[in-house]
């Protein structure tokens, strides 16, 4: 049987959700018999393949224009999109930035902080432009939500195993946590 293609990416995130993927330990190695990791932050393909993948996984919140592009591309190139972790599902801790005026927050970070000498707010065109932080499903349709900060390796394993069996996972018990 052909392997199921999976792509993952992170938006405004701490990488903890990807750590939790790795925290499946030996089970991840077993899963690799059935799935093929295409583009992920731990592999070298930079974008999901154009011909598409079956499962796309996004972690992190939408926090800048680059995130929006990445989320849209992932949506276009995957059949089933999973929002993994509180940031992707709810917007998460980064949405606390929304409480503040963007310039005020940037000023604190790059001009006023105690150690900063001759600060300035970075504005090169090479950088993504910050936007109001939101969950992935505020930008693109999400098929499966796995909250948690991070979701437990068990929850991730359960969800992937269900998908491999052709079922849509329904999180219950210890698999459904917000912290």
């Amino acid at each position: 049987m052909a392997k199921v293609k999976v792509a993952t990416d992170w938006l405004a995130a701490c990488a903890g959700c990807h750590m939790s993927v790795l925290d499946m330990d030996e089970r991840l190695v077993q899963l690799l018999d059935k799935i093929e990791l295409t583009s992920t932050p731990i592999t070298d393909l930079k974008h999901p393949p154009k011909e598409g993948v079956t499962v796309g996984i996004l972690t992190g919140a939408i926090s800048n224009t680059t995130n929006i592009e990445v989320a849209k591309q992932m949506r276009e190139r995957c059949q089933i999109l999973i929002a993994l972790g509180d940031c992707a599902v709810f917007g998460g801790i980064v949405t606390m930035r929304n409480f503040f005026d963007m310039n005020e927050a940037l000023k604190r970070a790059y001009v006023e902080t105690e150690g900063t000498v001759d600060g300035q707010i970075p504005c090169s065109e090479e950088l993504g432009r910050p936007v109001r932080v939101c969950a992935v499903n505020n930008i693109v349709k999400v098929d499966i939500h796995i909250p948690g900060c991070p979701p437990s390796p068990d929850a991730i394993y359960y969800a992937l195993s269900e998908l491999l069996e052709g079922r849509i996972p329904v999180l219950t018990g210890d698999n459904l946590k917000y912290d």
Binding site: D86, F90, G92, F99, I146, P147, V170, L176, Y178, D179
Partner: peptide, 30 residues
């Protein structure tokens, strides 16, 4: 603004417990 991930009550919160009980895996309204 409910940030369970760093909330002191997470795990003992009655609101959170109900959300788990009713399987809320995401919130519809931003």
């Amino acid at each position: 603004n409910h940030y369970c991930m760093y909330c002191e009550m997470s795990g003992d919160c009655e609101l959170q417990a109900l959300a788990y009980r009713y399987g809320l895996d995401h919130w519809t309204y931003p």
